[in-house]
Amino acid sequence: MNTQLLKTMNEQLLSLDRTYGADALAADFIQALRATLEQYTGETSQSALQSGLVEMYHLLLSSRPRMANLIDDLRKVLLHTKRDANFSLASIQAELQRLFERKRERRQESVAHAKSLLDQSHTILLHSYSSTLNILLKEIATSHPTDPPKIILAGQEPHKTERMIALLQKHDLPYRVVSEFAISHVLEEVDLALFGGLSLTNEMQLIMGPGSASLISQLEAAEIPRYVLLTTNKFSYWEENTAPSFTELREKKTPTATYMKQVFSHDVLPIAQLTGIISEKGVHTPTESQELFTTLRATFLQEEQEIAPLSSGAPQ
């Protein structure tokens, strides 16, 4: 495996996820794949294409944290090359377009399920930005033109908070920002809290944005409903040997001191701490989520078995 390529790809994926959110990254991933296939000048025989895609698949599997939805997309592409004996660059492009459209459908379906919950809430606590949230807020604003729910935005890193503010202003929803470390002061106002998530692991742990875990713990103690928006293609079925979140030390400078700050890429918490997951298939309690996970994992394992020969270089 090309370690330099792995490192670079991993850094790019993390940077996009951190800066623009998981949904944007998923869309960027597909678009980047499409652009890649358009610009590709190497060998375009079926074996060469498969080999290149398999290499990328292994790179994605080796990235940390594992981005299950991206791996799922690439697996679908590999399945296409396995199932269609006449596959070509053009057919792969068509498959990618189909996957892109399916993403949109999943988001719409998730939004419909989330809206049914939010319609009953007067004050909603929001934490994580996502394009699904953008659609959800638009739906809320449209269906509650005169009496929209109030939004309390848990303020985090400035660029993330600013993006959330842009969304709320765009949809003309009343909001105020409270720093995530001060949320305990406003808990009694909150009817429901909504978070974004990166992935649900085999160990039934949610990988979420930094800061989510402490907020959720407070909400749990106050018995306030707390949900995470997570489509099923973000379920991560692999056995994890390494920590899903990573940490690094960054040098920070102030006028009077230079110090090292430890930062973490993600928070990891058991799904049991949440009231439920909102996916394109509905709203699921932790127990229901586990059942759904098990069902979908069986499909995943079948698909993995189907594409396994591609990795071994066996004739297709």
């Binding site: 090309n2 390529l5 790019q12 940077s15 678009q31 652009a35 890649t36 590709y40 895609l53 990328m56």
Partner: peptide, 16 residues
Amino acid sequence: NDNLGWLFTSNLMLSD
């Protein structure tokens, strides 16, 4: 452009 992996990484960067 003759390497899928590196070309893909370039396109990811372009997304940003």
